[in-house]
Amino acid sequence: MFRSRTIRWLTSLGGRVSKVCSRRNYRVLAIETSCDDTCVAVIDRKSRQEPPVLLAHLKETLDSEKHGGIVPTKAHLHHQIKVGSLVQQALRQTSSERSIDLVCVTRGPGMPGSLSGGLDFAKGLAVAWDKPLVGVHHMLGHLLISRMHTNGSSPRYPFVSLLVSGGHTIFVHSKSISEHEILCNTIDIAIGDSLDKCAREIGIKGNMIAKNMEKFINENLEEAQSQTVDMSLPNPLRNQNGRMNVQAFSFAPFLTAVRTAMAKNKMEKCTKETRSMAYQIQEALFEHLITKLKLVISLRPDIFECTRHLVCSGGVGANRRLQQKLRDELSFQFQEFHYPEPSLCTDNAVMIGWAGIEIFETLGIKTELGVTPVKKWPLSDLLNVPGWIST
């Protein structure tokens, strides 16, 4: 049971009146299954005056290397097999079998089969324990996780977030937990997907291919920077005058360019020149990303005159080279750069738990038990999906 509860009334941004509950001394179970990682966390929320304490953080990732990518049916089966045992393990490790007060789970966006594996299990637990459920937007988790260790005090609203992963590449302006404007989005594939495909094309292998390529580059950076292979890589969406005036990302053209370079140079996969190619690919993708960020900054002075904090999160956000380039090239605009620790950049249940806490405490809402996964869920429409109810 919650040991204290204060109820106050606030007028929401949409003009509605909602009851907002402040709860202390409660424990959260969080589940994330949006893609191929089955993730479980237990978080202790001792009070609203201090950051929560992470008690358990478990993850099981589907091995997709032999399939050359994620197979949705296999990911669904993976979650069905793993989620129950991981939850049981987390509860036993933390002696939380009878002390969970809030269940948080990813509701979308993501692969419906994967999402249902975690969401259905979480709904069952909420029913069995008679506890509230919060269905969390996956990208909101990435956006908010940097605030957990400061108990929500930093970064302060308004701030912008670059959310970069295998499934998303979006630049977001956040005025509050429920007010988000997408400033720039990809028109084709995500940067993480492009990195994976380009890396696979030159012979990089593994379950996390882009991460393996970064490691491969850093093993001999001098060799990587030698540019022993001539590659003509794009900076897409230029107009006829060569100016970057299209406010969007595009990462699909890079794979075509890599294949062209491989054929032109008669390259075989995994040769001594591979490291040089890997370096050029990574640099070109990041250059395109930052070029577009600069464009958005120049076009939206109404936002950036008073925005001094940048969050970079998502799986690609853990890349050290990207973090360095963001600092080097965007320090004219931002005073503080927020990078979650690597384990919290990739998909994880901790971010889902913290986002659920912020939603539950700040907005005073929870999720109905009859909800279904949301495959496509714009962050700008966070509250415009059915299933939200007052606590």
Rank of each mutant, 00 (worst) to 15 (best):
I81L: 13
A90M: 00
G124F: 14
A122K: 01
I100N: 13
S114T: 12
Q89C: 09
L102D: 04
L119V: 08
A75Q: 02
Q89N: 13
L163N: 05
S154T: 11
L115P: 07
R107T: 12
V160H: 11
G113E: 02
H79G: 03
D101T: 02
R147P: 02
D120T: 03
L102W: 02
L143Q: 12
T94F: 07
S154C: 04
L77N: 13
F121H: 13
R156L: 11
C104Y: 02
V164Q: 06
Q93E: 15
G152L: 08
P155T: 00
G110P: 05
L162E: 01
V127C: 03
P158R: 13
A90R: 00
M111K: 08
F159T: 06
D130W: 00
I81G: 05
L162H: 08
L140P: 08
H142G: 09
A90W: 05
K131Q: 06
G141R: 14
P132I: 04
R98N: 15
L125E: 06
S146V: 14
V160S: 14
R92H: 14
K74M: 14
G110K: 00
D101N: 15
L77G: 11
L143A: 14
L140W: 09
K82T: 03
I100R: 12
L91R: 07
V160K: 07
S85Q: 09
H142Q: 13
M148Q: 12
R147A: 11
L133Y: 13
H79Q: 10
V83L: 09
H78C: 03
R98L: 09
G141I: 09
V103N: 08
P112R: 11
Q88M: 01
A75Y: 06
V83W: 03
G117Q: 01
V105G: 07
L119W: 10
G124N: 11
A128E: 15
A75N: 10
H78E: 01
S146K: 11
H78F: 09
H138P: 06
P109K: 04
V103I: 15
G113S: 07
P132S: 01
L119H: 04
L133Q: 00
P132V: 06
L86P: 01
S96A: 15
H142T: 13
L140T: 07
S146E: 12
K131A: 09
A90V: 05
T106I: 08
M111Q: 04
G124T: 10
Q89E: 15
D120A: 09
G84E: 14
S85H: 10
H79A: 00
G152N: 00
R107P: 06
L140V: 14
Q89I: 06
A128D: 07
G152Q: 01
G108C: 08
K131L: 02
A75T: 07
L133H: 12
G124Q: 10
S114G: 10
P72E: 00
H142C: 04
A75R: 01
R98H: 14
I145A: 04
S146L: 10
G110C: 02
D120R: 05
I100D: 10
V164I: 15
A75E: 03
Q88I: 04
V134H: 00
S95F: 09
P109A: 01
G152F: 10
V127K: 14
W129C: 02
I145N: 13
L163E: 11
V103G: 11
G108Q: 10
E97I: 00
H142L: 08
G84I: 07
M111S: 04
H78K: 07
S99P: 08
S165Y: 03
A75P: 11
S114F: 02
I81W: 03
I81D: 12
